[in-house]
Design a protein around this nucleic acid. Structure first.
Lengths: 347, 347
DNA sequence: ACAAATACTGTTAGCGCTATCATTTAGTTT
DNA sequence: AAACTAAATGATAGCGCTAACAGTATTTGT
């Protein structure tokens, strides 16, 4: 019965012929270690398959190793779960612990809950998902509590904290151009919830793609939506009841695109033959409807990794300078072509 | 600048006039404490707003306070995220930490990953979501590793571990009866993935509801599906191309019901006027399609709470006896009526 | 009434790691 | 080369909690 006891820092220290502190320093990226010792320590760590005991480290260092994750209650579960799962995975490797909390419209109650969370868990930092990453009261509260935070896809006060986003404008531009390349000129757009900045960016990208291709669309090809399935359906119903129907509709997210699809079904309009539909997000809804949606894939997992890395590595102090390279992180997106779009049918 | 330092166990002990061990015992539900001392300790804990330091507790008790959560990669994200979010919430209150891992078809690789997880994190227990809670190799591996585990909705080897489920048969029976009460007699059913036991149970509930209402349906009203949107659509296409169409279709999950809906749209069949559709699960898909689906709500959150409680409380030793009350947990479901079902139209 | 079992409470010694400060070594200056 | 500074390393003392055992009070049995 050989119980393969876990190696402790002392075992590593002894085998490497150094003190435990030196091992600790190597493991914590402390600069003050000679390259020679660093190398041998690393070697022994590998050999012994040593992994620091998180609890001991936490106890001794008085850091919580907790990271808060705040999201708004109407956030798409697909977005959330992608972020969460990757986040949990990264946390596992760094020994951190995600503390997830929901924020809702009752802002006072939510603020209280967030404060409680901070106090109880002593989080090392907080990640704010959209759209609450723009909530002024919340941001103020976090600053007052003196907690570091990283925001995902914020659209206001960009100098307030490090943030991670993708280029919504560019993605929107490109997916619109894709429709144009397929021969579409009558392209409609359903704008997202006006409370969220991305709606504006996506709308702008759409407009600019049209302009740079010398295409004009009439005002009734533009509808205001709310990022919900229903709002997309309503908007599409209007457009599709026109005599001069669009041949393609680009909705600012997948949920609204799904709504467009429903409207098309009801109106006996076949997709993609008579109408191409493009969405945005690539959540799981995109492949749950038929036909599957052409859409923009957001790099959610990468965002999660980066966000946690920023907090976990404690890069915050240097990041306060809003100009640091790591302060603004703009990640790449990907356009996913599926069956809801096709070249215009020539009659 | 009064930094409201966190109270330690010693502060509580002193104020309560007892030793730290007594406080510890009270906090850890140890029986051997007099009611009088227990009461005063509790009182002081409240007064001081004392919360045990998780790291210290973990270090001293040599328990990991980690709980593993294993899921299969094609599990509906809505199911997963519901479970996860509630689980994380409960964990926060108990000081535990969820470690989530995905299992896929490559069973050997997955087993290795699970073993690694167990070794690295020293989990106190593992929660298995369906359908992997039935995987023989995995179960064997866990037993060999001597890890406690709780299964959610298992359908084989029920004596192997504590489990939590709902009465799929009964729910299926009731939702079918609901259709019958609405006047439907031509009711179709799409069976779920035959690899998952719940498919059988739901099918059986459907059949028995018909039988107990003296309704007969022809064999071509029953189709085999795979729990996917596509399989539901294909199955529905067949049924809806019959001369003698059903007036209602009950699909064994929401994804297939969404497929039925797509098929109906394509076939220009209006829902619910000409066809009622019922699903099962009440994931977020149920309200993303139009019309929203009538379905069965699974008590996922409750399952998560219970599962974690079982592991966190370490009730395992006594639970080994398969007959213990806490071993088998069957929770209540709820039938959610939405707009995809309606009384039969009289012609 | 006294031994023996039982119920309760306290004492002590770490758990594995890092902060802090003391010490040693290497590098510079004059 | 002595005197000083800076860099690298080590020794020590906990972090806050619980396991293990040692008591002390209470109850039970005979």
């Amino acid at each position: 019965m050989t119980t393969p006891k876990r190696a402790r820092i002392q075992d590593v220290a002894e085998k490497a012929g150094v003190s435990t502190m030196t091992v600790s320093r190597v493991l914590n990226q402390d600069a003050k270690v000679s390259d020679a010792k660093r190398a041998i320590v690393m070697k022994v760590v590998k050999e012994l398959n040593y992994r620091p005991n998180v609890a001991a480290r936490r106890l001794a260092s008085n850091k919580s190793f907790f990271i808060g994750l705040l999201y708004f209650d109407d956030l798409d579960t697909s977005y959330l779960s992608k972020f969460l799962l990757r986040g949990l995975k990264v946390c596992r490797s760094t020994g951190h612990h995600l503390v997830v909390d929901e924020v809702d419209d009752d802002i006072d109650k939510s603020l209280a809950s967030v404060k409680e969370l901070i106090e109880v868990t002593q989080v090392d930092g907080i990640i704010l998902l959209p759209p609450i990453c723009n909530h002024p009261k919340l941001l103020t509260a976090l600053q007052q509590a003196n907690v570091s935070f990283v925001r995902i896809a914020p659209d206001t006060q960009l100098n307030l904290s490090p943030y991670i986003c993708m280029d919504d404008y560019q993605a929107s531009f490109e997916i619109t151009e894709m429709l144009i390349k397929q021969g579409h000129t009558k392209i409609g757009h359903i704008i997202g919830n006006p409370n969220q900045g991305v709606s504006r960016l996506r709308y702008q990208g759409f407009l600019d793609a049209l302009r740079s291709n010398q295409i004009n669309v009439p005002p009734y090809y533009i509808e205001q939506g709310l990022f919900t399935v229903d709002s997309g359906m309503e908007a599409a119903k209007k457009m599709l009841s026109l005599d001069d129907k669009p041949t393609a509709i680009f909705a600012a997210n997948d949920a609204m695109a799904a709504g467009v699809l429903s409207a098309a079904h009801m109106g006996r309009i076949s997709v993609p033959e008579e109408l191409s539909i493009a969405g945005f997000d690539d959540g799981h809804l995109a492949v749950s409807v038929s036909p599957n949606l052409t859409t923009v894939r957001q790099p959610i997992q990468q965002m999660a990794e980066l966000a946690i890395d920023i907090i976990a590595s404690g890069k915050f102090s240097n990041l306060s300078k809003a100009n640091s390279r790591e302060f603004r992180n703009v990640l790449d997106f990907e356009i996913v072509e599926r069956n809801s779009t096709a070249p215009v049918q020539v009659k």
